[in-house]
């Protein structure tokens, strides 16, 4: 037990105990003294900024995770039996992980700015310029950023899953005269189910990190189409709005606990 003690002590002091205080404060007035019941929760749920941010975050997650899963699965299937330059290709797809956010931001500005390279190209081909940063197109830029950054991570996970499928299954199917599509549909896909679940969770965790790019490109108050929960928390934090930020944090934790229990249950059902 001595092995676990330092870690657990740290987590208790730096996360669990202060979070108890957050729960308490979420039911109190701004000074953290008088008990006000659910008033703060009502305040948050009726808050326009909260509704906007929650909606955007949900929309982002619902769109970007399936797209990322499909794109990275497609590339992994191509890579699986690839012999020439496989290592180089894997390095290439993983490389964006090593490019610091701040460097990415410089590039993105160069590409997506109103006077940037992509718009330059559009103008030359006679198409109208697109405002990528200050219109609802910012949402698309954010999705591209997420795909670009996370595809490599997911490709490695998919490849691990694909390599774990016993070759004997494919051989048996081939002996039964199964075609390529049938093999994919009846062997590859079902065998990948556990991997899919894990990748979904990890993609979900990583989806919150696009805030970094969004923040460095557009600051505290970006175009409203990419105003995420992270912006909201950040802004409430900077204005020390305890009455709003504490109930919002509690609500988020409850949501996350439910998601994890659901995830554990799905995993159990696989066995």
């Amino acid at each position: 037990m001595l092995f676990l003690f330092p870690s657990l002590a740290g987590i208790t002091v730096f996360v669990l105990l202060p979070f108890m205080d957050v729960i308490r404060r979420s039911f109190c007035d701004a000074m953290g003294r008088k008990f006000v019941g659910m008033a703060n929760y009502k305040l948050v749920l009726n808050n326009k900024a909260f509704q906007l941010a929650a909606g955007n975050t949900a929309k982002f997650i619902i769109i970007c995770i399936p797209v990322l899963l499909l794109v990275s699965l497609g590339i992994s299937l191509l890579l699986k039996n690839q012999r020439s330059r496989k290592e180089f290709l894997k390095t290439s797809f993983l490389f964006p992980m090593a490019i610091p956010v701040a460097s990415v931001v410089l590039l993105w500005r160069l590409l997506f700015h109103w006077n940037g390279l992509i718009n330059g190209l559009l103008v030359r081909t006679g198409i109208e310029k697109i405002d990528f940063i200050n219109s609802n197109k910012a949402f698309i830029v954010l999705i591209i950023t997420y795909l670009w950054k996370n595809a490599g991570y997911n490709i490695i996970l998919w490849l691990t899953g694909l390599n774990g499928i016993p070759a004997s299954l494919y051989e048996a199917a081939a002996a039964d005269g199964a075609g390529k599509w049938a093999k994919f549909r009846y062997i590859t896909l079902p065998q990948l189910a556990p991997t899919t679940l894990a990748i979904t969770i990890l993609s979900f965790v990583n989806s919150f990190k696009v805030f970094r790019e969004a923040y460095l490109i557009s600051g505290d108050y970006p175009h409203e189409s990419i105003y995420m929960m992270q912006h909201l928390f950040n802004n409430w934090f900077l204005s020390l709005d305890m009455q709003k930020i504490t109930p919002a944090a509690v609500l988020c934790i409850i949501l996350f606990i439910m998601l994890i229990l659901l995830f554990m249950k799905l995993r159990k059902n696989e066995d």
Partner: peptide, 24 residues
Amino acid sequence: VLYVLYILLMVLPFQVTMVSSYLV
């Protein structure tokens, strides 16, 4: 229970625990 706790902490975005970290 502890293991679930660790997974939860791993999954939580920084912003959710920001206030509690700040308080301590």
